[in-house]
């Protein structure tokens, strides 16, 4: 366990070294949030509520969705692709740890860093500029905390899956990019899932993506009742468990391939 904690710490220090990222990053995320805020204000126009969400809930949704993205988002799929192509993975495999676990911990180190240096101050700044609504209810915060941790795991697992495909595809930068685009849309970052037409919602229900952004954001904005929140979190947890299966299968096949081809 020690070595995994150490990995989190090292990532944390590495992120600190790239300090200019955070001065500019917060500013630019704020602009991003701002633009969506205005877009949604224009969409709402005179309406009080769409799909049961008020304008204020909507702007809070946008803000928290983006700031949570700073936490769960990472590039470990691209890093894996690079490491696999450069043949470094073979070296990683003989080290005394689980490669995928290590990658996850690196992502977590990065995420924790961004949570404290990016998301939290960013959220404070954004709340001065735009009218947001924070819940006074402790259970909401508790649910939210559990939920974004789970969204981190779902997103990271999907990244691991995409990263492993590098073993089988000659070049997967296109795939990685496509995955990112799909996640931004289907996770509910750009539009809450409840805004989609019903048939689309029915399909999305059976996909893991809404666990990444939609669920924690809906919890944060109090758009879910307690019951709905608990159900959604359980569903997130189920997805975390389900996703372990394809990762392990692909990983075993990939390792076999690595041995045969010599990386």
């Amino acid at each position: 366990m020690d070595k995994y904690l150490e990995m989190i710490r090292i990532r944390f220090l590495m992120m600190l070294a790239y300090r200019t990222n955070y001065y500019t990053g917060i500013l630019i995320y704020s602009i991003n949030i701002g633009a969506y805020y205005f877009l949604w204000s224009a969409i709402y126009g005179e309406k009080d509520a769409i799909e049961g969400m008020s304008v204020i809930q909507m702007s809070t949704y946008v803000a928290v969705a983006w700031m949570a993205r700073a936490f769960y988002f990472n590039n470990i799929d691209r890093e894996m692709a690079a490491e696999i192509k450069e043949g470094k993975v073979a070296v990683e495999l003989i080290r005394p740890y689980n490669y995928l676990g290590m990658k996850t911990m690196q992502g977590l180190g990065e995420g924790v860093f961004r949570l404290f240096f990016f998301s939290v101050p960013g959220m404070v700044i954004v709340s001065f500029i735009f009218p947001l609504q924070f819940s006074a209810d402790l259970t909401t915060w508790l649910f939210f905390a559990v939920s974004i941790l789970l969204s981190f795991f779902i997103n990271t697992q999907i990244n691991l899956l995409t990263g492993i495909t590098t073993f089988f595809l000659f070049n997967n930068t296109g795939l990685i990019r496509a995955k990112r685009v799909v996640i931004d849309l289907f996770s509910g970052l750009l539009i809450p899932i409840s805004f989609f037409p019903n048939w689309a919602q029915d399909i999305l229900k059976y996909l893991p993506f809404q666990g990444i952004s939609y669920v924690p954001s809906m919890i944060f904005t109090n758009s879910f009742s307690n019951n709905e929140a608990i159900q959604a979190i359980i569903l997130q947890g189920v997805w975390v468990i389900i996703l372990v299966i394809p990762i392990q299968i692909l990983w075993v096949i990939a390792k076999k391939q690595l041995i045969i081809q010599g990386g």
């Binding site: 710490r9 944390f12 220090l13 600190l16 070294a17 300090r19």
Partner: peptide, 12 residues
């Protein structure tokens, strides 16, 4: 760069 976590914060 300064050493350690505290040093890294000061470097910020």
């Amino acid at each position: 760069s300064r050493s350690g976590l505290k040093g890294a914060f000061r470097d910020l």
